[in-house]
Nucleic acid binder design. Sequence first.
DNA 1: AGGATGATTGCCT
DNA 2: GGCAATCATCCTC
Length: 183
Amino acid sequence: MTLPKSFFDRPVAEVARDLIGVTLLVEGIGGPMVEVEAYDQADPASHSFKGPTLRNGAMFGPPGHAYVYKIYGIHWCLNFVCQPGSAVLVRALEPRHGLELMQERRGGLGERQLCSGPGKLCQALGVDIGHNGLPLDALPFELLPASESQDVATGPRIGITKGVETPWRFVRRGSPFLSKPLS
DNA sequence: AGGATGATTGCCT
DNA sequence: GGCAATCATCCTC
């Protein structure tokens, strides 16, 4: 069964860690997540740091919904809203379901390059602003718990200039599908 | 009303 | 390793 909204109504770093290994499907396309990052309102790197705005509105809505935004005018990024002002950015997953469609959307690339980054993942899964605010416990989303315990490692988040000291990047240790090695 | 900027990616040297 | 692409949002005047 797909994860209930209550799964997200917890401290964001805890949710982020527990999401490693959880299978994310959008219209049946996706696979187990191997890299996520946590952001909360006290965090200067977070979109929610300065309070609600038009863009980040979903981050202040109820837990268990999607927050989608466009970055650099080009790429979409998918987040899972947790407690108010906090969310988990989905950065990479292991392509397992719907490989053919993912490759078509991404331009016929190898498996390693299909979902190894937040923008790539959204392109491969067909996520865009139309998904902003949608509940995560209903179609087109499915979130299926991992069947085995996961070897999770943490490190500094990618691509931020503030809040760099908060080690809220969570990865499946040794996964070949990360956006970057842990370092 | 105008300008700086970004939780990125891919192409070029 | 360096940098351009591309634009809605947000902040300042």
